[in-house]
């Protein structure tokens, strides 16, 4: 099975993307680069749409007060996507169906091979060994490449801060919890244990075991095991995934190649790059502390 080599792909600036072969893909679609990766298994058949996870995320990440309280169920009227003010949202689907509605929590999926990371030409993003995809907002220039690159429409743009335009998204509670081995705030609060935190490799086994022991409850698919090269957040469902807001067109290949195409299509963005370079360079020299940066390479001017 061919898979793009992640580390080399990080060096996207002007060089070709190296193709690489991973070890034979046995069972899990996780690529071998992050053996210690943690993750969260979302069991949509358990979720009751209480929105506690949204409230917990809001507090943990010190996000602004919501427009309405977290027990306001009218937000379910239409599907939402994560924003700079809400790193996670719960959506409702299949309301009219018998046995419905079905709820699904949406947040960054913490891809094994993150398109946001590869699309970012100031290297604001880092994939940590624990699996979290984090970013350095001091380096971010607000170009929004990652917003377009992300296959799950995750990164939110902080429109309110004109002076420091930055992207914001779920960081798997890296700073406050994941780093010290604690479960994310949303997992901690979930009353239904619809969210299971653990080693990604264990979660994949658990997910398949749930399907095996409850074949009537689940579709025989663990979403995120293989999609776009595998993600740290995994999903079980009893309803077809495209009916609960997943994009059925995503393949198991990482998005890296698409990102490259995309970068070729945005001369506008790239043309402002040299102007920004010196400023960013100074900034990034101050904030070189982001652990796990896989590359020290500087982007080349196009």
């Amino acid at each position: 099975m061919k898979r793009r080599n992640f580390l080399k792909a990080c060096l996207i600036g002007g060089t070709t993307i190296a193709m690489g072969k991973t070890n034979k893909g046995w069972a899990s679609g996780s690529f071998e680069g992050y053996p210690e990766s943690m993750g969260v298994l979302v069991d949509t058949t358990r979720c009751i749409g209480c929105r506690s996870c949204e409230a917990a995320c809001n507090k943990e990440q010190k996000l602004p007060e919501p427009d309405t309280s977290f027990d306001d169920k009218s937000v379910f009227e239409e599907p939402r996507r994560p924003t700079a003010k809400a790193y996670t949202v719960v959506n409702q689907y299949e309301k009219e169906k018998p046995g419905g509605p079905v709820y699904r929590k949406v947040q960054c999926n913490h891809c094994n091979e993150p398109a946001c990371l590869t699309s970012c030409f100031v290297n604001a993003y880092t994939k940590t060994k624990e699996g979290a995809v984090i970013y350095n907002s001091k380096v971010c220039v607000g170009c929004r490449n990652c917003m377009i690159a992300c296959p799950f429409n995750v990164p939110g743009y902080d429109y309110e801060s004109v002076t420091n335009p930055v992207i914001k998204k779920c960081i798997l509670c890296y700073d406050t919890r994941l780093k010290v081995g604690k479960p994310p705030a949303c997992v901690d609060i979930c009353p239904q244990e619809a969210l299971t935190f653990g080693h990604r490799a264990d979660l994949i086994k658990i997910a398949h075991e749930r399907i095996r022991s409850n074949p009537d409850r689940y579709l025989d698919h663990v979403y995120g095991e293989k999609e776009v090269g595998g993600t740290s957040w995994l999903y079980l469902s009893g309803t077809e995934f495209d009916k609960i807001g997943f994009d059925p067109s995503l393949s198991n290949d990482p998005i890296i190649s698409n990102v490259k195409d995309f970068l070729g299509m945005v001369p506008m963005v790239l043309s402002i790059w040299p102007a920004l370079f010196s400023g960013i360079h100074l900034l990034s020299k101050h904030d070189s502390g982001g652990e796990g940066h896989d590359t020290e390479s500087k982007e080349e001017e196009p």
Partner: peptide, 13 residues
């Protein structure tokens, strides 16, 4: 925690 005091404000979306 739920900011319920603001219940009744217009929906977030």
């Amino acid at each position: 925690f739920n900011s319920s005091s603001r219940l009744g404000a217009k929906p977030a979306h």
